[in-house]
Amino acid sequence: MALSLEQVRRIADLARLRLSADEERTFAVQLSAILEHVRQLEELDVTGVPPMTHALAGGEAPELRVDADRPCLSPAEALAAAPAREGTCFKVPRIIE
């Protein structure tokens, strides 16, 4: 299962990563080796086996909280770590040209 440079670029784009040419080459080799290793899962017959879709032990149902108001961060606290803000908003670069 060898990944091409083209595939690596496509995945990076989906993941919103901008890789250097060096990283593209390294990841193509390393990810191919990892994917080759995970291919051993194909040896197993999983017909009729349900996927483990949650990790709660003993099949416990998750405890859902009551849908009620509760205290939360103030706008000032929520915005305190923002790289850029304007008023009570997070500021981002222009989205529409």
Partner: peptide
């Protein structure tokens, strides 16, 4: 800092993440 939003995402993540998170993000995305 970057001109558009997508460039900002990609540039931020390229600079902020080291090799291992990038490798795992790539693997998981695939």
């Amino acid at each position: 800092e970057a001109k558009g939003l997508r460039e900002m995402y990609a540039e931020t993540r390229e600079r902020g993440f080291g090799a291992e998170p990038k490798r795992r993000i790539m693997l998981g995305t695939y």
